[in-house]
């Protein structure tokens, strides 16, 4: 039976979206393994790379709090 509840949207993934999903998984996998990536054009990936870089930082010697 293929009926779908009228209140529930039918979600279909096209081939393009599947490829996007797999490509993104490869990029995220590389990020998670801290493998070097070319400068990402995707702003989301760039932000995540910046967060990883910051979180992995060995030590922070500069305080961001302005002295009063």
């Amino acid at each position: 039976m293929n009926a779908v509840h009228p209140g529930r949207p039918v979600r279909r993934y096209g081939r393009g979206e599947q490829i996007d999903t797999l490509a993104e998984d490869l990029i995220l996998g590389a990020l998670s393994r801290r493998e070097p990536l070319p400068v990402p054009g995707d702003p989301a990936v760039r932000l995540l790379a910046a967060l990883i870089d910051d979180v992995d930082q060995r030590r922070s010697s500069v305080s961001m709090t302005p002295s009063t």
């Binding site: 995540l48 910046a50 870089d53 979180v55 930082q57 922070s60």
Partner: peptide
């Protein structure tokens, strides 16, 4: 350091 900090905070 500041640039990295700002980007990470943005993320």
């Amino acid at each position: 350091t500041v640039v990295r900090y700002i980007e990470a905070e943005h993320a």
